[in-house]
Design a protein around this nucleic acid. Structure first.
Lengths: 342, 342
DNA sequence: CTGAAAGCGCTTACAG
DNA sequence: CTGAAAGCGCTTACAG
């Protein structure tokens, strides 16, 4: 029987830290420290508190915790799009790492618009997240300042950092674009087109990689670039292929900036009876779902997005705990997946 | 110059309701009521408070609000999978409706496992969400009780409610499965297969629709059902088609429970030179991205998931505001999309 | 229609 | 290593 007990039920009927402390016969603050696994608590007391919490079914109140500590268990995650499988895979990996560690994601979709990102950042920051996960480096100055001034740990996804003092996990989009283009050249192709939609910063980095590879071989021809700001889709891929055949029937290969475009192009080629890869080689980017099922199967660049999500979340976890990560910038690389279309 | 002012800066340096109240020369509680748009505040005061808040750049603290009111601005959303485009579309629609109304989503992925859903529910409930959005009706008794006991507004997604006192927005999966099967029968097909993966409750409801349609015509043959618990994918669709051709070469049509399976099957048919729809008609379900680009384009059932997300979120918003929605169960229906594959 | 008081459940310094 | 006090920023009854 506890000597200090005195029911004193709260209006809400919730089981509170105080209840746990009373059951364990310690003060509330000791119970708090014991439960949070803080150093400098007698192991015997820790055990007693944990047992009491367990037995009472105590669940800490995140709101009270956030209010008292000025820090929540939320991590704001800002991605461009939910309708691109790439980012969905990324999110799943982030969630897998963050949730078991006791954090929740607040997902924001920016639609590739810096102003939307800035607005989201502003509203999410009001929730006092414990950390930030943002996509790439393309944002407004105000957004950059918001991140900076918040003082919160922040990890950048998808690309590799070009500046110091910035945490990032990604890959060199430029290098990947260069490598797949180099592959086409090595296969003997000479008039290699680049077809792209969306035209976000990472697509343009791939474009630069494509250009530098072709320039190195004296094969660069700006008229072989088909760029449109429309969002990518299989339907757009089909239209881009048709446009390519019309405008540059002499093209012997085409690099599509994303697999959905390439898949659409492959189906259009089938429809138009354009032999792939004999008359036209086709390659994509990202190795999305279904690319291996195409006819012929699509050659593409595999981007390890699960790894990006997992490593970025791990890095953020370390930063939130005040631990310095081994490296500020992690390059997860990429892999050429050579299949029948090239 | 304010008569009541007295700096009294907080340690955190945040702009608080008190600051706003002081600037507007009202009490904190009046400022609170004015900002929340509650009735029974003098319009002149409301204007003064709003102006002060605006000018100071006041942002309410969600944690303090949640602690004081025992209710947060979070809505827990539980879906089976993030890797099914169907649910991503649903989420986007929910977000579009909820975020402008001042709510945040906490997204949980259950992987079609009732135990995972129950665990997520338990942990999300600790965050005192303002409302719940869950998928379908298939859950553990404990989960049902958690929802019930929480007393929180809850709307069920995807299916239509079979019981009273339950809010739902969806469509009759049974009816949709029946309709697409009926379409195949009306086209003269007699040996119609049903191929499915995942086997979640909604897939099984479609299966029942398929069965009842065929039974009505005396065409039902259990040996034409190819069921596997594997998650759906284009690759699985290809394998199911191959199995069908091997086991039942006499089949003249196949209903795939999801478009990714049907797309994979269509590509496999192309590879194996099986003429679609001449030798075998193929239909899918959900009208996912790319189905219109297939060769031939895929006949399927369009499920209005954006509408489900939007209407469910709207209904939840009403419930959270204490308003009774016009209907407890909204059937958004479905649409047969007849294309070349059938 | 408006306000003073109390409290939501936790953690942060500050002592010892 | 442990605790008493104060406070985080808001809202809920309760008065008037």
């Amino acid at each position: 029987m506890s000597k200090t007990s005195l029911p004193r039920r709260r209006a809400t009927g919730r089981i509170t830290l105080e209840d746990v402390a009373r059951a364990a016969e310690v003060s509330a603050i000791t119970a708090s420290r014991a439960l949070r696994g803080q150093r400098s608590v007698d192991p015997a007391l820790v055990a007693r508190v944990q047992a009491a919490a367990q037995q009472l079914g105590y669940v800490p109140d995140p709101a009270a915790r956030a209010l008292a500590s000025a820090r929540s268990t939320h991590v704001a995650v800002l991605i461009p799009l939910l309708s691109n499988a790439l980012f969905v895979d990324l999110l799943e990996a982030v969630q897998h790492t963050l949730v078991p560690a006791g954090y929740q994601m607040m997902i924001g979709v920016t639609h590739y618009k810096p102003e939307e990102e800035e607005a989201l950042l502003r509203s999410y920051l009001a929730h006092r997240p414990a950390g930030l996960l943002v996509t790439g480096f393309d944002r407004t100055d105000a957004a950059r300042r918001l991140i900076e001034d918040s003082g919160l740990p922040c990890v950048h996804l998808m690309e590799t950092a070009r500046v110091g003092g910035i945490y990032s996990v990604g890959l060199s989009q430029h290098e990947a674009g260069r490598a797949i283009t180099e592959h086409l050249v090595s296969r003997g192709h000479r008039r290699i087109a680049f077809a792209a939609g969306q035209l976000d910063p990472r697509v343009m980095q791939r474009a630069e990689g494509y250009r530098s590879a072709l320039r190195a071989h004296g094969l660069y021809d700006p008229a072989l670039e088909l760029l449109t700001p429309e969002p990518t889709s299989m339907a757009l891929g089909a239209r881009l292929l048709e446009r390519l055949l019309r405008e540059r029937p002499d093209a012997d290969a085409a690099f599509f900036c994303n697999d959905d475009l390439a898949q659409g192009a492959l189906l259009a080629a089938l429809r138009l009876q354009v032999p792939v890869p004999q008359r036209l080689a086709v390659v994509g980017f990202n190795d999305l779902n279904g690319s291996d099922q195409m006819l012929p199967p699509l050659t593409t660049v595999r981007t390890p997005r699960q790894q990006i999500g997992q490593q970025a979340a791990t890095m953020l976890l370390q930063l939130m705990r005040g631990v310095t990560p081994p490296a500020a910038c992690v390059d997860v690389g990429f892999e050429l997946v050579l299949r029948g279309s090239s």
